[in-house]
Write a protein that binds this DNA or RNA. Structure first.
Length: 868
RNA sequence: GCCUCGGUGGCGGAAUUGGUAGACGCGGCGGAUUCAAAAUCCGCUUCUGGUGACAGAGUGGGAGUUCGAUUCUCCCCCGAGGCACCA
C-alpha cells in the first residue's frame, strides 16, 4: 500500500479494473432482482457543468448501493442531442449542428468516464441519430392514424424582422433577442398530441406514485388542473350581433351566474373581429393585443385592458342584455376564449369592472356580508348562500349548482362539464435541428403519414442554419416528394418535433438500445421497466415528467410496455450555486468575476467582509450566492476540480455539502476538507495494514474500550444504512462515517483485539464509503486483504448486540428548560427515573418554593418537571 | 399574476418527525511540531452579561396550541423553481 493518498494513480487503476472486467455491463438475468437507476440524460452543450456532476454522482451512489444489496443494476447513459443551442452555435461558428453535437458528445463522454460512473456504456445512444428517431417517427404515424395526433392552429412568437418564429426564451422584454424587433403573436398550423385525452389518468395515477415527492405531485395536479363546472351559453340574435348564435363560456362558479354583468372575449375571438368591422378603434386594440410574446408569465403580468363593443348577448336565465367586452387577459387558447364576468365575486373581474365602471352585483352572502364595497376582499370570493338571485335565493353552492344546471339544460343553454387546465401538446417547431415530422402534404389526399417502409425521414446533417426561418423549408431536395397514396407530386412537412418528444421515451429505449425491429424489444423493456429510481433537476418537475408519463401510457396503449407509469421513485435534485462578485462601471453595467479569481477578506470571527480581485488587488462587490451560470460568471469547471483533487474528492464534497434535493453551495475550502478526510482514511488504513494482519475478532472477549470502538462502528452502519438506503441523505451518512473515523483514529492499537476491532472499523468505513468514493474504496478494500472487488461486496450488516449499553444519560428539564443530566441504568423503572430526577441538585434549586404539578417521563430521553 | 418549495451560528448544514437546538464539515482564534513554510496534530468557537461557576436570549417576523415547538395552526416578509417554443 502506497504511503501517500494519490488519487490519480488510484482512480486510473480502479477504472482500468472495471473496464477490463466489463464490471457494469448488464443483461436480462431471469431470477435476479433488477434495479434500474436512471439519471436524466445530458444535453451535449459542450462540457460538463456542476449540475451534471451532481446529478450523475447521486445516481451512481444509488446504483452502487443497490448493487451492494445484491441486485442486477442497470445504469445507462446517453445524449439528448437535438435542440436549439446547436443551431445557435452553428450560427455563431458556421459549424453544422450535427458536427458540433457529435464532437461535444465525444468530449463529454470522456469527462463522464473520469467521474468513475458505474454505467453500462454499451447501451449509449444519441437521440439525433436515425436509428433512434425513426421509432419516434414510426409512433407518430401510428398515433396520427389513431387520431391521437391532429393538426390545428397555434399561437407563436413572430419576429417580423428576422421573419422567424422565436422560442419564449428568445423574447426579451417583448423584443426579438437578435433583431430587437417588437414581437407579434401569430397563428400557424401545428401538430398536437391529444394529451387532454389522458388528463384524467395522468391525474389519478399520481396517487399510485408513492415514491415521488409530494411537491412534484402537487405541482402536476395543479398543472393538470381538473375543475368541475358548467358550460354556459349566452344567446344572441340578429338585432344585437347581426346573426343568431350562442357565446360559450365555462365557469366553476355557476352559482354566481345571476351576478354576471358583462362578458369578455379574447382579441382573437370571432365576435371581437366582428365588432371591429364597424369600429376602427377596436381593430387598433385587437392589433395592440397581438403585441408581445405568448408566454403565460408575460400575459399574466401585463396591465389588464379592455374595450367595450357595441355588441350584446342575453343572460341565459334573465334574458337581460349584457355588453360584450374585448379583454387582453382572456386568452383564445384557454377554454372557449370567452368568460362571463361576475365582478362581485371574482377578483380579476372586480378589478376590471372597477377600472371600466361596469356594474357590480353581489349574489352571494359571504362572511363580508351582502354587499361588496371597494376595495376587493378575499371574502367576496367565498362560497355561500345565494341572494339577489330570484328563485335561487337561499340555496347553497351545491344546490344552486344543480338547480341552475337543470334550468340551463331545459333551455339548452348549458350543462355541467369537467374542464382541465392542461392543454394539448403542440409539438411542431419551425427549426432545423430536430426530428422531422413524418407527414407528406398532398393536394389530393391531405396530410398523409409517411409509410413504414419509407421511414426514417432522415434529417440532412450537413446544414448550417442562419436564423431566418427553417433551412429545411428552403431545401427542395428535402421537401419535394411524391404522395404515398396517389403518387402525385407532394410536399414533405419541414417542421421538426419539440425536443421534449425524444426525452419522453429514451428511458424505454435503454432496455434494448440497438433493437432494429421496433421502438423497444417488449421482453427487454418489460424486464427493466419501470425505472426504479429516476434522478434529475427539480426544474423538470412538470413538463418533462408529465410528457414522459404521457408517452409511457401511449406506448402501453400500443402494446409496447406493460406498466402504467415509467418512474417508480423520483429524486429531484437541487441546483448548484456559487458566490458572485462584480464591479459596476461608469455606465452602471455590471462586470462579473469568477470566484476563482477573487480573494475574500474576513473579520476576527471569520465573517467575510470584503473581496478583491487577485490580479489587481482592487475591491469587488459581493453579489450573493446564485445558480452557477455564464451570465453571472460564477461557474466552477468540474474538470479543473477533478484534475486537481480527483473524482472521489469531488464526489465526496458534492454528496456531503447538502442533501440531494436541496440546493448546493460550491465551496473551495469544502472541497479541500473532503480531500483532507480521504487522506485521513488513507493514512489510518496505511498505518494499520503496515503493522501486519490482525487477529480474528472475538466479540465475546472485548474490553469496555474495545466495545466502545465497536459500538461506534455499528452506530455508523445503522445511520448510513438508513440515510443512504431509505432517505437518500448522503450528507448525514458521510457525517456518520466521519464520526466513526474520529473514534477509530483515537482507538488503541496495542492489543490483538484492539487491531481486530480496528480492522472491522476500517472495513466498515470502506464499505459505507464505497458507493460515494468508489476508487479509493476499491484500493482500500484490496489493501485490507479482501480478494473480491468492493463493488461486489455486500453492504455491511448491523450487529444490534454491539449497540447495547448498560446505562443511559437522560435530560432533566424544569418547566421545559434544560436543567441537567442524570445517568440511569438502561433498565431503570419509570419510578426510579422520576425519583432520580427529583433528587437532582438543579431540580431542587429551580423548584424551590414551587409545588410540583406533574412529572413527564419520556423513556430513554428526558424527564420534565412541571412546577409553579 | 398563478402554482410549488425554502428561510436554523461567521458559512454549508444536523436534529431519530412534538422531547438536550447547532451533529458533521468549513472558516476563525489559540497552541504543538518546524530553522521557516506547507502539511499534520491538540484545544476553543450561537449571541449577550459575568474573571468565573452561571444566568438570560435564540431556528425570517408576529400571534396561537402544548408540560415542552426548528417541528403543528393562522397572518406577514424575503428568496428560489416552474408557467406549456431553454433543456
Amino acid at each position: 500500500m502506497q504511503e501517500q493518498y494519490s488519487p490519480r494513480d488510484i482512480e486510473h487503476a480502479a477504472q482500468t479494473a472495471w473496464d477490463q472486467t466489463d464490471a457494469f455491463k448488464v443483461e436480462e438475468t431471469p431470477g435476479r432482482e433488477t434495479y434500474y437507476c436512471l439519471s436524466m440524460f445530458p444535453y451535449p452543450s459542450g462540457k460538463l457543468h456542476m449540475g451534471h456532476v451532481r446529478n450523475y454522482t447521486i445516481g451512481d451512489v444509488i446504483a452502487r448501493y443497490q448493487r451492494m444489496q445484491g441486485k442486477n443494476v442497470l445504469q445507462p447513459m446517453g445524449w439528448d442531442a437535438f435542440g436549439m443551442p446547436a443551431e445557435n452555435a452553428a450560427m455563431n461558428n458556421k459549424v453544422a449542428p450535427a458536427a458540433w453535437t457529435y464532437s461535444n458528445i465525444d468530449y463529454m463522454r470522456n469527462q463522464l468516464k473520469s467521474l468513475g460512473l458505474a454505467v453500462d456504456w454499451s447501451r449509449e445512444f444519441a437521440t439525433c441519430t436515425p436509428e433512434y428517431y425513426r421509432w419516434e417517427q414510426w409512433l407518430f404515424t401510428r398515433l396520427f392514424e389513431k387520431g391521437v395526433i391532429y393538426r390545428k392552429n397555434g399561437t407563436v412568437n413572430w419576429d417580423p424582422v428576422d421573419q422567424t418564429v422565436l422560442a419564449n426564451e428568445q423574447v426579451i422584454d417583448g423584443r426579438g433577442w437578435r433583431s430587437g424587433a417588437l414581437i407579434e403573436k401569430r397563428e400557424i398550423p401545428m401538430y398536437y398530441f391529444r394529451i387532454t385525452d389522458y388528463a384524467e389518468e395522468l391525474l389519478s395515477s399520481l396517487d399510485n406514485l408513492t415514491g415521488w415527492p409530494e411537491q412534484v405531485k402537487t405541482m402536476q395536479r395543479n398543472w393538470i388542473g381538473k375543475s368541475v363546472g358548467m358550460e354556459v351559453h349566452f344567446p344572441y340574435d340578429q338585432a344585437s350581433i347581426g346573426h343568431a348564435g350562442k357565446l360559450k363560456v365555462f365557469t366553476t362558479r355557476p352559482d354566481t351566474l345571476m351576478g354576471a354583468t358583462y362578458v369578455a372575449v379574447a382579441a382573437e375571438h370571432p365576435l371581437a373581429a366582428q365588432a371591429a368591422e364597424t369600429d376602427p378603434s377596436l381593430l387598433a386594440f385587437i392589433d395592440e393585443c397581438k403585441r408581445g410574446g405568448v408566454s403565460e408569465a408575460d400575459i399574466a403580468t401585463q396591465e389588464k385592458q379592455g374595450r367595450a363593443t357595441s355588441l350584446f348577448v342575453e343572460h341565459p336565465l334573465t334574458g337581460e342584455k349584457l355588453p360584450v367586452w374585448i379583454a387582453n387577459y382572456v386568452l383564445m387558447g384557454y377554454g372557449e376564449g370567452a368568460v362571463m364576468a361576475v365582478p362581485a365575486h371574482d377578483e380579476r373581474d372586480f378589478a376590471f369592472a372597477t377600472q371600466y365602471h361596469l356594474p357590480i352585483k353581489p349574489v352571494i352572502r359571504t362572511s363580508a356580508g351582502d354587499t361588496t364595497p371597494e376595495p376587493w376582499q378575499d371574502a367576496y370570493g367565498e362560497k355561500g348562500m345565494l341572494i339577489n338571485s330570484e328563485e335561487f335565493d337561499g340555496l347553497d353552492f351545491d344546490s344552486a349548482f344543480t338547480a341552475i344546471g337543470e334550468v340551463l339544460k331545459q333551455k339548452e343553454l348549458g350543462a355541467p362539464r369537467t374542464q382541465f387546465r392542461l392543454r394539448d401538446w403542440g409539438i411542431s417547431r419551425q427549426r432545423y435541428w430536430g426530428c422531422p415530422i413524418p407527414i407528406i402534404h398532398c393536394s389530393n389526399c391531405g396530410d398523409v403519414p409517411v409509410p413504414d417502409d419509407q421511414l426514417p425521414v432522415v434529417l440532412p446533417e450537413d446544414v448550417v442554419p442562419d436564423g431566418a426561418g427553417s433551412p429545411l423549408a428552403r431545401m427542395p431536395e428535402f421537401y419535394e416528394c411524391t404522395c404515398p397514396r396517389c403518387n402525385q407530386p407532394a410536399r414533405r412537412e419541414t417542421d421538426t418535433m419539440d425536443t421534449f418528444v425524444e426525452s419522453s421515451w429514451y428511458f424505454a429505449r435503454y432496455a434494448s438500445p440497438h433493437y432494429d425491429k421496433g421502438m423497444v424489444d417488449p421482453a427487454a423493456a418489460n424486464h427493466w421497466l419501470p425505472v426504479d429510481q429516476y434522478i434529475g433537476g427539480i426544474e423538470h418537475a412538470i413538463l418533462h415528467l408529465l410528457y414522459a408519463r404521457f408517452f409511457h401510457k401511449l406506448m402501453r396503449d400500443e402494446g409496447l410496455v406493460d406498466s402504467d407509469e415509467p418512474f417508480k421513485d423520483l429524486l429531484t435534485q437541487g441546483m448548484v450555486l456559487a458566490d458572485t462578485y462584480y464591479r459596476i462601471d461608469a455606465k452602471g453595467a455590471r462586470t462579473w468575476f469568477n470566484p476563482a479569481d477573487v480573494e475574500v477578506e474576513r473579520d476576527a470571527k471569520g465573517k467575510v467582509v470584503r473581496a478583491h480581485l487577485a490580479s489587481d488587488g482592487e475591491p469587488v462587490e459581493i453579489g450573493g450566492t446564485e445558480k452557477m451560470s455564464k451570465s453571472k460568471n460564477n461557474g466552477v469547471d468540474p474538470q479543473a476540480m477533478i484534475d486537481q483533487y480527483g473524482a472521489d474528492t469531488c464526489r465526496l464534497f458534492m454528496m456531503f455539502a447538502s442533501p440531494p434535493d436541496m440546493s448546493l453551495e460550491w465551496s473551495d475550502s469544502g472541497v479541500e476538507g473532503a480531500q483532507r478526510f480521504l487522506r485521513r482514511v488513507w493514512r489510518l488504513a496505511q498505518q494499520h495494514v503496515g503493522s501486519g494482519r490482525p487477529a480474528a475478532l472475538s466479540v465475546d472477549n472485548l474490553t469496555d474500550a474495545q466495545k466502545d470502538v465497536r459500538r461506534a462502528t455499528h452506530l455508523a452502519i445503522r445511520q448510513a444504512s438508513q440515510d443512504i438506503g431509505q432517505h437518500h441523505k448522503f450528507n448525514t451518512a458521510i457525517a456518520a462515517v466521519m464520526t466513526l473515523m474520529n473514534v477509530l483514529e483515537k482507538a488503541p492499537q496495542a492489543e490483538d483485539q484492539d487491531r481486530a476491532v480496528l480492522q472491522e472499523g476500517l472495513e466498515t468505513v470502506t464499505l459505507l464509503l464505497a458507493p460515494i468514493v468508489p476508487h479509493i474504496s476499491h484500493a482500500l478494500w484490496q489493501a485490507l486483504g479482501q480478494q473480491t472487488p468492493v463493488i461486489d461486496a455486500p453492504w455491511p450488516v448491523l450487529d444490534e448486540s454491539a449497540l447495547v449499553q448498560d446505562s443511559l444519560e437522560l435530560v432533566i428539564q424544569v418547566n421545559g428548560k434544560l436543567r441537567g443530566h442524570i445517568q440511569v441504568p438502561a433498565d431503570a423503572s419509570r419510578e426510579a427515573v422520576e425519583a432520580a430526577a427529583r433528587a437532582n441538585e438543579n431540580v431542587l434549586r429551580f423548584t424551590e418554593g414551587l409545588s410540583i404539578r406533574k412529572v413527564i417521563v419520556v423513556p430513554g430521553k428526558l424527564v420534565n418537571i412541571v412546577a409553579n
